[in-house]
Amino acid sequence: MCLAVPGQVKEVYGEGLERLAKVDFQGSRVEVSLAMVPDAQLDAWVLVHAGYAIEVLDEREARETWDYLKTAGLYDEIPPALEPKP
């Protein structure tokens, strides 16, 4: 199952194939391997698949992805309730 949204690298530890990161998805974090994205630095936006970061997105691109989500109306704050229909 592919994960659509990018996360942000918040902690990096280890080296080479053992380079790991804590990646933040708006308040939740997972540990992923950075072995496939050796250039990923702290605060980088990454796509994650099965415990591995598979690509680095530049900030503008990452925000574009978020904009997509916004146009879908999906990632707003808590929506105002629908008023009761007559």
């Binding site: 592919c2 194939l17 391997s33 415990g51 591995y52 598979i54």
Partner: peptide
């Protein structure tokens, strides 16, 4: 997408 993880 999953294969490089197995290789690693």
């Amino acid at each position: 997408t999953t294969t490089p993880a197995s290789a690693l």
